[in-house]
Computed example of a mutant assay.
Amino acid sequence: MAYPYDSTVSAAIKRAGLPKSHKVHWSEQRKADVVRAVRDKLITFDEARWRYLLSRSEFRTWEEKVDQQEAKEIA
């Protein structure tokens, strides 16, 4: 479980500033926020897939873009 037992997924999503559902405009920043939330274990990968209706390949594409952006910032 990615969040304390006395918390909920919705509370974790709200704390992370993530969209409530998949019905949003997916800017690059929002995609990156979801990727970072999963990596930081604020929500699980499966929770992100369910809530935002993501396929594994779509999430991987988002991850690759985040990795590329972070590499640019380091260079």
Rank of each mutant, 00 (worst) to 15 (best):
22 H>R: 14
22 H>N: 13
10 S>K: 13
46 D>M: 03
38 V>K: 03
14 K>T: 12
27 S>Q: 08
8 T>A: 03
7 S>C: 02
45 F>K: 09
48 A>P: 01
17 G>K: 10
57 S>D: 13
74 I>K: 15
58 E>D: 01
61 T>I: 01
13 I>P: 02
6 D>I: 01
58 E>Q: 13
53 L>Q: 14
7 S>R: 08
22 H>Y: 15
67 D>G: 00
50 W>E: 12
60 R>G: 01
25 H>F: 13
21 S>E: 09
61 T>K: 12
5 Y>Q: 11
63 E>C: 15
21 S>C: 09
25 H>Q: 14
9 V>G: 01
61 T>E: 09
47 E>W: 00
31 K>M: 10
28 E>I: 08
40 D>H: 09
32 A>L: 04
42 L>Q: 12
1 M>I: 05
44 T>W: 08
28 E>W: 05
1 M>E: 05
50 W>P: 00
55 S>I: 02
33 D>T: 04
70 E>A: 12
32 A>T: 09
4 P>A: 05
54 L>Y: 05
33 D>N: 13
56 R>G: 09
55 S>F: 05
72 K>F: 05
67 D>F: 10
1 M>K: 08
28 E>K: 14
26 W>G: 10
13 I>A: 02
2 A>Q: 08
29 Q>E: 15
74 I>V: 13
35 V>W: 07
44 T>H: 07
29 Q>N: 10
14 K>Y: 12
71 A>I: 03
63 E>L: 05
63 E>N: 10
61 T>A: 14
25 H>P: 00
57 S>Q: 15
27 S>N: 08
16 A>V: 04
49 R>T: 05
65 K>A: 13
4 P>Q: 02
25 H>S: 13
60 R>W: 06
55 S>Y: 10
53 L>S: 14
36 R>K: 14
56 R>I: 06
10 S>H: 07
57 S>H: 10
8 T>V: 03
22 H>T: 07
23 K>I: 09
17 G>Q: 04
59 F>N: 04
6 D>N: 07
72 K>E: 14
25 H>D: 12
71 A>V: 02
36 R>P: 00
61 T>V: 03
54 L>T: 02
11 A>K: 11
69 Q>M: 11
43 I>D: 01
25 H>G: 01
1 M>D: 03
40 D>A: 09
18 L>R: 12
7 S>D: 04
47 E>L: 02
19 P>S: 10
57 S>T: 15
59 F>T: 03
17 G>P: 03
21 S>H: 07
59 F>Y: 15
34 V>G: 06
24 V>G: 06
